[in-house]
Amino acid sequence: MAMARPEEIGAEAVKELATERSGAPITNILIIIAMQTEAIPLVNKFQLSEDTDQSLFPKGVPWVRYHGTYKDLHVNLIWPGKDLVFGVDSVGTVSASLVTYSSIQALKPDLIINAGTAGGFRAKGACVGDVYLVSDVAFHDRRIPIPVFDMYGIGARQALFTPNIIKELNLKVGKLSTGDSLDMTPQDEASILANDATVKDMEGAAVAYVADLFSVPAIFIKAVTDIVDGEKPTAEEFIKNLLAVTAALDKAVSQVIDFISAKCLSHL
Rank of each mutant, 00 (worst) to 15 (best):
T198F: 11
F214T: 03
A194C: 09
D226M: 01
A159Y: 02
A206R: 01
L169Q: 01
R142I: 12
V131M: 07
N164P: 05
L193E: 13
K167Q: 10
L160N: 01
I146G: 02
G153P: 14
F220D: 00
N195I: 02
D136P: 05
A156V: 06
D226C: 00
T185H: 00
D150E: 15
G179N: 02
V173E: 06
A205R: 08
D201P: 12
V199T: 03
M184P: 08
D196Q: 14
L160E: 01
S191G: 10
A126S: 13
G129F: 05
M184T: 08
M151N: 14
D180Q: 11
L213P: 08
A138K: 05
S177D: 05
R143G: 03
P147Y: 03
D196M: 12
G153I: 03
I192M: 11
G153A: 10
Q187L: 14
I146A: 13
T198V: 09
D212V: 02
V148L: 15
L133R: 02
F214G: 01
E189Y: 11
K172F: 10
L133V: 09
K222W: 04
G125Q: 00
D212C: 14
V199F: 05
M184C: 04
K222D: 04
L169W: 06
Y132D: 00
A126D: 07
M202W: 01
S191Q: 14
S215Q: 09
D196R: 14
A208S: 15
K200E: 04
N170P: 02
T225R: 05
S135E: 11
T178Q: 05
L213Y: 12
G155D: 04
V134H: 03
T225L: 02
N170G: 09
V173D: 00
M184H: 02
G153R: 07
A211P: 07
T225F: 06
Y152H: 15
F220M: 09
F149H: 13
V216E: 04
T178F: 09
L193P: 07
Y152R: 14
I144G: 07
L182G: 01
L182V: 00
G125M: 00
R157Y: 05
T225D: 09
I165M: 12
D180P: 15
S181V: 13
H140L: 00
D180V: 09
P163K: 07
V128D: 11
K167T: 01
S177Q: 03
P145N: 12
V128W: 15
F214A: 03
V216F: 06
L171F: 14
K200V: 08
R142F: 10
A197P: 02
K172G: 09
N170H: 09
A205C: 13
D201L: 04
K200C: 11
G155Y: 08
R143T: 14
Q187R: 15
R157G: 07
D136H: 12
V224W: 09
V210M: 11
V207Q: 06
G125C: 03
T185F: 04
D141R: 06
K200L: 04
P145H: 10
K200N: 05
A223G: 00
H140V: 05
S191A: 13
A159T: 03
L193I: 14
I144Q: 14
K175I: 13
V173H: 05
G155W: 06
L169M: 07
V137D: 04
Q158T: 08
V134G: 07
V137W: 08
T185D: 04
